[in-house]
Design a protein around this nucleic acid. Structure first.
Length: 681
DNA sequence: GAGCACTGC
């Protein structure tokens, strides 16, 4: 570890030149289990690059309250730093927490460290993620998701159980990590003021853009870790490409004809449809290649692919064949594939943007950031030297934005604001964010919470109401939490808990386009004229009636894994309801009550039929339409509440529930007094 | 009559 951190290695990398990345060995969700390990574990630990720096590192970390640590993931920093601290007796008075953006990472890292410490998981070393807490009173090294630590902070804003908090993968800038920055900084200051045991905060990043981190944590020192590095050659196109898919196709086959067949290719693209189309084209072309050109195995990779198909990316291609993986940005961080020699980067990504005025989130194809382009390139140099073909010119690269905009600046802030207030932050409008969201986004979130009755304004300040405090105890979007809290008034908590659980997981329904007619026929049995919520509820009830029978799921195009998740979520929500002393009962066949409750809870998402047959969203007065996937698509209900707006070719409402105008008026008389135009019903 | 990047509590 050099004492002079300047210039950081990455800043020396010039586009187009050879640059170096170190060896990575990050456990990924789908990383296949290692076979047998021949090197003893304590020898392995000493072989890690970080081991050389241990004395200086400990010396620094002992003294510092804040430190920023740069090193590639898997240089050993995530597994070793917590052990070094513990072994040196630093932070022994409490627990050392290490946060991760992803569950799988928290779980597998804990497993690895427990193995290295030769202790059973859940004793000295443990982990906590949603639905799973493998810790005990003996646990001193605790791996957890960033969201989990945030949730704990609501009950204990000073984080008094912890003496050290390590925020890992900070460069990813998830909403949770960004909020945690502020939470740990506040906790640190308050603990000092209250003469409590100090809190040490270590921020770990794999990228060099740490000026912000250092500045934010009182100009804290930045420590650099070097790792094992492999050179990667970067290539740019000579001309801008108008069709990146065509360019990708050409590049794939150019490499295929020139490189040894054992060298696999990873192509970064934007989404499922594009990936499947290019996969078909590649397979077609590969059939008619000249002699001397080996066969090609084309494998798509994206998150919505069933897990068994995702695992295919890890199977080596048959001898003499080349593996070509067409992937979304899931392969940037979540899935780690070995053997990649070539990366082809289209330079494009599909990402969500949020418009606070309309409250609309739009999924759009856009250019990657420079940091993202480097991350993609790095995937070619994990075991050995590699190449990255960028399907754009060097000047185009120079014009990319340096960093991906942190998620907190492009998402709906309603949940974040509610959580901050539940944490007892006095002035949420001026919370000390590392990267401030726009004032419009903050204002819009607070207005939303005010409409739901979660906050009140007094003399220009906002306060959490008793209702808001209860809402914050649910791991849900505020409007869902509100709906649950209203449900006892309508004697339908059981039904609402099921519906909210169904809505809070990824879809529980399969829709294979090739079997469209079968899907429609199967779905018809559960279809309700009252809307999609009630239809989902019917499916869930049927699922429970057959005890989740797999055969039944297949016949009815129901995703049994996600249904299992629904049950877990429901159990968790029920638990919270019991702690809040909510009355849990079922309304049985009287589903009108369920719809009344949904209308009351979701009134901000209401739409009204216009005389010309179109719909207007009542809050923003923008034109909206019923999504063709809705069971209400054929009908023309006068009033509906909807779950979300999807902006594609039009602005579509998804997951609709039929409601009465009167119910909406009852829910928010003032709000609707000026918006509703009830026609004779 | 349409189509969904990726996480997480």
């Amino acid at each position: 570890m050099p004492n002079d951190p300047d210039p950081p290695p990455a800043k020396r990398f010039k586009p187009g030149s050879v640059f170096f990345r170190q060896h990575k060995n990050k456990p990924g969700m789908l990383l296949p289990r290692k076979g047998h390990v021949t090197t003893p574990i304590d020898v392995q630990r000493k072989q890690l690059p970080i081991y050389q720096a241990k004395p200086q590192l400990l010396n620094q970390l002992r003294q510092l309250h804040n430190a920023i640590l740069i090193g590639e993931t898997g240089s050993g920093k995530t597994t070793q730093i917590p052990q070094y601290l513990y072994e040196a007796g630093i932070g022994r008075a409490g627990i050392i927490a290490i946060t991760q953006p992803r569950r799988v990472a928290a779980v597998s890292l804990a497993g690895r460290v427990a193995e290295e410490k030769r202790t059973p998981l859940g004793k000295l070393v443990g982990y906590t993620v949603r639905f799973e807490d493998v810790t005990s009173s003996e646990t001193k090294l605790k791996f957890m998701t960033d969201g989990m630590l945030l949730r704990e902070a609501i009950g204990d804003p000073l984080l008094l159980r912890y003496t050290v908090v390590v925020l890992d993968e900070a460069h990813e800038r998830t909403v949770h990590t960004d909020v945690l920055f502020g939470v740990v900084k506040t906790a640190q200051r308050r603990r000092r003021e209250l003469n409590k045991i100090p809190l040490k905060v270590i921020v770990m990043s794999a990228t060099m853009d740490v000026d912000l981190f250092s500045e934010y944590f009182n100009k804290s020192p930045v420590l650099y870790l070097e790792g094992r590095q492999h050179p990667i050659q970067i290539y740019y196109t000579k001309q801008p490409q108008s069709d990146y898919l065509q360019a990708a196709l050409v590049s794939i086959f150019q490499i295929h004809q020139e490189a040894p067949p054992s060298h696999d290719i990873l192509v970064f693209m934007t989404g499922q449809e594009e990936i499947e189309a290019l996969a078909r084209t590649c397979r077609d072309i590969a059939k008619h290649l000249p002699d001397g050109c080996g066969p090609m195995v084309v494998i798509p990779l994206y998150a919505s692919l069933p897990p068994t198909q995702q695992l295919r990316v890890f199977q080596p291609a048959p001898k003499g064949s080349r593996k070509v993986i067409l992937s979304t940005n899931i392969a940037e961080t979540s899935v780690t594939i070995s053997g990649i020699k070539f990366v082809i980067d289209t330079g494009m990504v599909k990402a969500k943007r949020f418009n606070p005025d309309s409250g609309l989130e739009v999924l759009a194809v856009q250019r990657v950031s420079k940091a993202q382009a480097w991350q993609r390139a790095g995937r070619a140099g994990r075991e050995d030297s590699g190449s990255c073909y960028r399907l754009y010119t060097e000047p185009e690269f120079d014009n990319l934005i340096p960093m991906t905009v942190p998620e907190i600046q492009r998402c709906n802030l309603a949940s974040v604001m509610l959580q901050l207030m539940a944490l007892g932050i006095p002035d949420v409008m001026n919370f000390d964010f590392m990267s401030k969201p726009s004032p419009e986004a903050v204002r819009s979130a607070l207005e939303h919470l005010e409409l739901l009755g979660a906050v009140e304004r007094k003399e220009g300040q906002v306060f959490l109401t008793a209702l808001g405090k209860k809402m914050a105890s649910f791991p849900l979007e505020p409007r869902y939490a509100k709906t649950i809290l209203l449900s006892p008034d309508y004697s339908c908590s059981e039904e609402i808990l099921s519906i909210v659980s169904l809505l809070s997981v990824d879809t529980v329904l399969f829709n294979p386009p090739a079997r469209r007619d079968e899907v429609l026929a199967a779905r018809k049995k559960f279809s309700s004229s009252e809307g999609d919520h009630m239809t989902l509820l019917n499916i869930y009830r049927a699922f429970k009636k057959v005890s989740g029978n797999k055969e039944w799921c297949r016949e009815n195009f129901v995703n049994s894994r996600n249904m299992g998740l629904v049950k877990e979520v429901q159990a968790q929500l029920k638990d919270i309801c019991l702690k809040l002393n909510l009355k849990l009962e079922s309304c049985g066949a009287d589903t009108g009550n369920v719809r009344r409750c949904l209308a009351h809870g979701m009134f901000v998402n209401a739409a009204e039929l216009q005389p010309d047959g179109s719909y207007l969203a009542l809050d923003t007065h923008q034109p909206v339409a019923i999504h063709p996937s809705s069971v209400l698509f054929q009908g023309k209900p006068a009033y509906v509440v909807f779950n979300e707006l999807l902006h594609t070719s039009r602005c579509y409402m998804r997951d609709l529930c039929l409601v009465d105008a009167d119910w909406l008026l009852d829910a928010a008389p003032e709000y609707f007094g000026r918006k509703l135009h009830p026609t004779k019903s």
